[in-house]
Amino acid sequence: MDQAVSILTIEDETAVRRSLVAHLEDLEYDFIEAANGVEGIEAFNRAKPDLVLCDLRLPGMDGLDVLSTIAESSPDTPIIIVSGANQVSDAIQALKRGAWDYITKPIVDFQILDTAIERALNRARLIKENRDYQKHLETLNQELSIALGQLREDEEAARALQSSLLPPPEVQYGDYLFRRKLLPSLLLSGDFVDYFPIGNHEVGFYIADISGHGAASAFVTVMLKTLFEKHLDAYQHAQEEVVRQPHEMLDHLNRAIYQSPIEKYLTIFYGVLDIREHRLRFCSGGQFPYPMLFTGEQVTTLTSHDKPVGLFEDSIYTQHQIDFQPVQQFLMISDGILELFPRDSARRRTEWLQQMVSRGAPTIEELVDRFDIEQMDEIPDDIAFLSIVRGERNE
């Protein structure tokens, strides 16, 4: 059960103070009373309330001085002035000194007060959440900076670390066999794939392509894995469901990567497959080539035009859902595959890719053979494959 919100009321007129306290009690707020400014400051320091209601005309210590003292010591605590001094100059002075709102007495309609309290508490909550999130990002950035230095010192260790983060080459979830293969152009890869169970009947999966090459790009794959595991752990502890909603997950990734000290961005396709209902929720952050669906003899693509992740702070991601029942195979390949075709327009190279892929529902190994990838001395760009096949197949 959430802890009740506590409100400190600083008011010298007993009848007015009792009226306010009675109203707060009816709304199930915890309340603290103070009859003057000095008592109010002492009560605030002792109880640390979530919100303060304060009169301006107080005996001894003036309400503006009380306001200044509290605002200086605790700027994130909402302070609402409730005063009979109905003068514009008073309101301006109060707002300048840190008041969050100003309400005049007598209060004829308590809904005005209720709305002001609710608005102030919501704003305070958002400020706290943002500060906590910024603190988390700062900690994460420090950890990333340390880890990045370690990666640069020992790329072999980095490759071992990156490989350890990949899922098994193939895993069966219900009726679906998940397979992956990662072919780096250098020692470290900027491509990454992953799949993992979410609860009892859903599987999350993604393919990502980090901008650039080398240790910095590879490190973003570590960051990516860490962020997904953070939200998966939060879901498993019933704290949130972000990892189940692809558009929310990409929104969180976009903010974290945009604000990270590593100047990288990525394209990503993230899907959540309900293996019991055979439905797919998905969201694409600029991933290309588009994922391919094999249904019998037909091959279709899931087109999407959302922006890459981490490139723009205000990017908005759209979630889609499709019936996965007729799908025999779902295939995703990173854009490194397009570098194996002659230099031409992206559209033309995509057409060539679909021609190569559309001969049946090929396995990953069959595709590697078709493109003669493993016979090359070096490949021009990282290539990642992620395949989901309905029912188990033997390669």
Rank of each mutant, 00 (worst) to 15 (best):
L140N: 06
E42P: 00
L113N: 02
T104V: 14
P49A: 04
G174I: 06
P197R: 07
G84Y: 08
G84A: 14
L51W: 05
F178R: 04
A34Y: 08
D314G: 03
A35M: 13
G286V: 05
L64W: 01
I316M: 12
H320M: 08
D251C: 11
V203N: 05
S68V: 10
L27P: 03
G98K: 02
L250K: 13
L166F: 08
L250Q: 11
L113C: 03
P342G: 02
E240S: 15
A158C: 04
I92E: 15
N200M: 03
G149H: 09
H305D: 11
L8Q: 04
L331W: 02
M1T: 13
G60L: 05
R347V: 13
R370K: 13
G63R: 05
K225G: 11
Q142E: 15
E170I: 04
V220S: 05
L113H: 03
F330I: 03
D175V: 01
R125S: 12
Q162R: 00
E240P: 10
E240Q: 13
A158V: 02
S83E: 00
S89H: 12
Q259N: 15
I373W: 00
I127C: 10
L161N: 08
G63K: 04
M292R: 07
L121W: 05
I112E: 12
S164F: 03
L353S: 01
F192A: 09
L266D: 00
S334G: 04
E72Y: 10
T363R: 06
S284Y: 12
L182R: 09
R57F: 00
P197I: 02
F178P: 01
A147K: 14
N130P: 03
R276H: 12
G212Q: 04
L51T: 06
D335N: 10
I32M: 00
K96G: 04
V88W: 12
V82E: 10
H201S: 14
Q287G: 01
L95V: 14
L232A: 05
